[in-house]
Design a binder for these strands. Structure first.
Lengths: 231, 231, 231, 231
DNA sequence: CATGAATGAGCATTCATTCAT
DNA sequence: GATGAATGAATGCTCATTCAT
């Protein structure tokens, strides 16, 4: 994770095909892949409404009509890009914990949060453009919003609540309202991701150090000696 | 601030005219005000690219041509809405002693942060739609981005750094890299604003309690007894 | 006539008011004059269809609505500019003894043609922009065309035919079909005017010499010794 | 050429396609041809500025968008109509005379001028509407004017000067300033073309006779016996 | 499968004209 | 008289979508 070198390009196509394929068996044609790739680029550059299907076709190297063979409408293409990404983004929260057994494979809250940040940073880096589209379009696409509410607010929040309370019970997390704790935690993580990938992507980041710092802030706060509460 | 009741509508028109007017003397005509109001609504609902000037005109109750008497282009209307809002949004950081929030050193970092959160929450509530437009359009409008970089990255960051190091020197803030502290702080504040206004605006919030909680997290972390660092 | 110096500007306003005034008594207001002046400039620069009344108003220094106080429509303004000019342009052929050019038989055809060319060149120079508008708009304005056909084809041609046959009878003009002679004559004159004022206005013209040359060509042709017909 | 019957329509489509096609191989689609044809008609009837693309589309029997598949803008359509016509119009002056050898394949100036008039009259008759557009739009289209100056003033004038001086040397043309001779000559020719095609197209013209007459006027003038210079 | 010509509704913008002040 | 705010029809142009080849 310390290596910031641009290996994003390498293996990107495979990632996309893996991420977006409805199922592993159903392989995509090269043209369909090119359309998706072009769609991701143009949508993230110009936004959905301002993106022209003709430009997507051109960048994909296919005829305009070909797009509509694979995707009935422009919106269909958008959802075909963003929807699977949302699923994968929250997959860690949904996949584990089958048959009701809470499965937190980490010794400590700190280890869990560190693994989580590393893992999601990696994911966000690989799917940066798609996530950008997702964030930009969620205010305008009811279909996306519904899916988001159902999955994230529904499943993820439930899971995260369970995890948080698990560590609360172990005394590793303060005894405060869980929703507030979750909001604070997620704010800190996403805040780092945004600064890292969106605001200052060109800065020379030391991810390991920054994650440690952020974790320390989250756990012990930023109060200096003068303000530290006696315990 | 505890009153969450929807007094946003009340006095809203005055706010907008106050916020956007180039100068206080230069009063806007009612039609221009209606256009701005309609623009704010439609832009925030549909996004700039998907908003039709015809719909703005209709909602404003004016002829389509009237819009273009006041604003040369659709983009002009957008910038006339968003630009002054950005200026006001960062005004506390740029103007000296605006609202007494910044320039007069607060007794403590905590008091300062509390005042800041209260003040900006109030501002964000009043200008919610405009801020929404701002956030949605900044990726696509170079003019906005330039203004943002110049003002926020330029002036605000400088100011915030000074303040942070002021409190660091007083021992109220931990001795860690200032940029990381600022990122963490802003993440927590904005995270609260987003949850409060965007994600769950209908929840029954107790703003004072949430702000206190958030401040406590920021200063002392969320580590429970088991994890607390001995000092 | 030898002085090519730009005294066009000097006295131009008087000329326009004189040329366009419906009657001498009915004096124009300064605003109306400014509108006409601006109309002449913008129409000749951009053509009638591409000229905006707002631009005319701006250049005239009046409000947009003011134009329509004086001229019911944009077309009205056009005709108010061009119509009187057409009348004046053909006045020598219609009025008796105007300027002494036509009615009093000149001593010779050559003297007549020279006087005519000098006189109309002077006129065309003074009313260059208006004539330009006239030529540019006559294909598209039925009102203009009717007026032109009635006056020029009707009155002027009749008069010119009479004059030509007068000199034909005196043996000064060749015994050939009068319409062909007139066509040839007018072609030569207008050809000079166009080259002089439109195509190469910046060339250093010696009008007297060129008119003499043109007259010589018209009367005796451009055949050299080898081709000259024995008589 | 004596037949004045309206065979302009017959074969006109082929002419247009031949005239405008970038190369013979690159055949136009019927729709593109219809658009050009409609453009020629509407532009020549109403002028470029007053012509509506919707009307062109309607007359061409295509959807409005189709025009813009073939021509990026309305101005593009105009230039695609007029530009090649200008090239063809001056082709006779440009094509011959390669590698510096002056090639005047005519025994006498008279034969040359007659052939020239016949040839250009034929051309003008076939491309009447396009030439009309050209003349009407050249004052307003800088692109046209540049092309005109470069080609006509540049190449044609040079060539015509050479030809005139060739016949001057042979004693067939009078020893007078060449520019004046050219102006006079072109005036006479164009004067005939305008009268023939524009002013009085419905008159029963005897082209051969009129051309002979015009040639006689050009060469020997219109002076009658009383004025004839003794030689 | 793939193409790209064709469509036509929709859009931002212009502009002659009106009319209350 | 003079103004200029307001209008709304008209315009050039774009673009998602269809469909014959």
């Amino acid at each position: 994770m310390e290596k910031n070198n641009a290996d994003e390009q390498q293996g990107q196509e495979e990632w996309i095909s893996e991420l977006l394929a409805i199922s592993e068996e159903e392989k995509m044609t090269p043209k369909q892949l090119a359309i998706l790739q072009a769609g991701i680029e143009i949508f993230s550059e110009k936004g959905y409404a301002a993106a022209a299907t003709s430009e997507i076709a051109q960048r994909a190297g296919v005829a305009e009509g070909t797009i509509f063979r694979y995707y009935k409408t422009k919106k269909d293409l958008l959802l075909s890009i963003v929807s699977p990404a949302m699923t994968k983004m929250i997959a860690p929260f949904v996949l584990r914990n089958f048959d009701g057994v809470l499965d937190v494979p980490f010794d400590s809250y700190e280890a869990f949060m560190r693994a989580f940040m590393v893992n999601r940073l990696e994911f966000a880096r690989k799917n940066f453009k798609i996530l950008r589209i997702f964030v930009q379009e969620i205010p305008f696409q009811p279909a996306l919003r519904e899916q988001f509410i159902e999955n994230v607010i529904g499943k993820v929040l439930e899971r995260v609540t369970a995890i948080t309370e698990h560590f609360k019970a172990k005394g590793e997390v303060i005894d405060a309202p869980t929703p507030s704790i979750i909001r604070f935690t997620i704010s800190s993580v996403i805040g780092y991701l945004l600064a890292r990938l969106l605001l200052l992507p060109d800065k020379d980041w030391d991810d390991a150090a920054e994650i440690n710092l952020t974790l320390d802030f989250m756990l012990h706060g930023i109060a200096g000696p003068a303000l530290r509460r006696e315990e």
